[in-house]
């Protein structure tokens, strides 16, 4: 049986989901409002924040992405459980 995730895991995951959601919303908005400079700046600001949060998350819980978009410790962490539908 894979490790049980603790409250801190769910908290950090939720924080990341919140920033990523803002980015999804701004992304779709900008697809139809390409000249809104303020929204583009907001998008870029959140992208920086997202990178920092993802870094913290990956340090504690392993890679978020595959195919070279995240780093791995030894042994290979990507294929470790749990997967998103399991937690």
């Amino acid at each position: 049986m894979a490790k049980q995730m603790d409250a801190a895991y769910y908290h950090l995951l939720h924080e990341l989901q919140a920033v990523d959601f803002v980015l999804v919303e701004l992304n779709l908005y900008l697809d139809t409002h390409p000249n809104d400079l303020k929204a583009i700046e907001e998008y870029n600001r959140n992208a920086v924040k997202r990178k920092e949060l993802a870094c913290t998350y990956e340090e504690k819980y392993g890679p978020l992405m595959h195919f070279g978009h995240s780093y791995s410790k030894y042994p290979w962490q990507w294929a470790e459980e749990p997967w998103p539908w399991q937690v």
């Binding site: 769910y10 995951l13 989901q17 890679p63 992405m65 595959h66 195919f67 990507w78 997967w83 998103p84």
Partner: peptide, 12 residues
């Protein structure tokens, strides 16, 4: 496409 190992929104 690149997979990201998390759900978009928590499913409980």
């Amino acid at each position: 496409w690149i997979y990201e190992k998390k759900l978009q929104y928590p499913v409980k």
